[in-house]
Write a protein that binds this DNA or RNA. Structure first.
Lengths: 193, 193
DNA sequence: ATAATTATATACCATACAGTCCATTACGAG
DNA sequence: CTCGTAATGGACTGTATGGTATATAATTAT
């Protein structure tokens, strides 16, 4: 009934995500996107809308494909504590192994756009809440397990951990020094006890 | 011997700092700066150089006039622990009282430019190191005072605290909720003991 | 007052930008 | 095979961008 797309929208969106991750929103031009995505300009607008919409889609994809699976793995781990350690460990391994120092697209977007783009702000705020809630659940499980002492508020501990994670992401943009990052993760884990 | 400037370079630089703080680097045009600073375009270039140089100068000024004095106050406090509490308290008060949710210019700049502007990266990395060193000094003093138990590595604790601070700054861009921020600060302070 | 020097106003430049239009091409249902 | 539909190439638009040039105005040492 109609000509079919010469590109895979999923792949193209992933490329857009990666470019925004590397360069940020403002520093990325539509021309940059056209080249990186390998999609014709008109097709890009027809498929994804304007630059802002495309960014929002790329951010949603980042949350769904990068952040959420890591949290899934954290929750699924048989040992709650090991799950948390694994989360921090993966984060550090990624940061230390990324010569481009992209950091985290969500944190980058928060710093660049929060307060100036309501939709992006809402998206990121929701993600931050999800992170906290899920961390609190895992911490509560660790307390129930006896892996962590009881009596401390899991929500407060989760908030601290979420802040440390954001802090690690900022730090890894400036000095992705594995040893220092691991020291932070260890001290943070100790703070849960 | 020559005509004198019709503007105060210090005041103008402060205005530039505030605009970059509000909008970020890429989202701020030279025209925006011309208007906000109240300086003629040619005078702006003659006095401060190009946009990148001006941003670097504004960032240096931010570090010198916003960040450094807070750290001074932290170190000077008679009680080391109260100094640290004061630091976190001021940070939270600022975040909670800023309807524009500007966050921290240094963190914003790190997320937007680190890895793509070597000079800015070096500047921010240096500031991060200064923060850690000075926090470690205060923590060591608290340990020596008996305000904190001895035996824990002040550098590791300082690194954790610095990460929490960066995390608070990110969080305050999304949800500058005073109670939640205070809960994080309290839990972080507890982690020092 | 004059001359040397620096600041200012304003026009200007080339380029980059986000977004659109249209002619052409390919697909697939009938 | 044909026709309706949608995708594509690529030129195009108006505007915004960072940065400069030039002419004029103000300052002060002499």
């Amino acid at each position: 009934m109609a000509r079919s797309k010469a590109f895979d929208p999923d792949v193209a969106l992933r490329k857009a995500m990666q470019l925004f991750w590397r360069q940020g929103y403002e520093a990325t031009s539509v021309d940059d996107l056209v080249h990186a995505m390998g999609v014709n300009r008109a097709s890009l607008y027809a498929t994804f809308g304007d630059k802002r919409t495309l960014f929002r889609l790329a951010l949603e994809r980042y949350i769904a494909t990068v952040l959420a699976p890591r949290l899934d793995a954290t929750e699924i781990a048989s040992s709650a504590l090991a799950g948390l350690r694994g989360l921090l460990g993966e984060l550090i391994a990624f940061a230390a192994g990324d010569p481009q120092r992209r950091g985290c697209l969500a944190v980058n977007a928060a710093c660049e756009l929060a307060g100036r783009d309501p939709e992006v702000t809402a998206l990121l705020k929701g993600q931050a809440e999800t992170l906290e809630t899920r961390l609190a659940r895992v911490i509560a499980r660790a307390q129930a397990n006896g892996e962590l002492p009881r009596g401390r508020d899991p929500t407060a501990l989760a908030r601290l951990l979420a802040s440390v994670i954001d802090g690690l992401r900022v730090r890894s943009k400036l000095a992705p020094d594995r040893a220092a990052l691991e020291s932070i993760a260890e001290t943070a884990m100790a703070a849960l006890g």
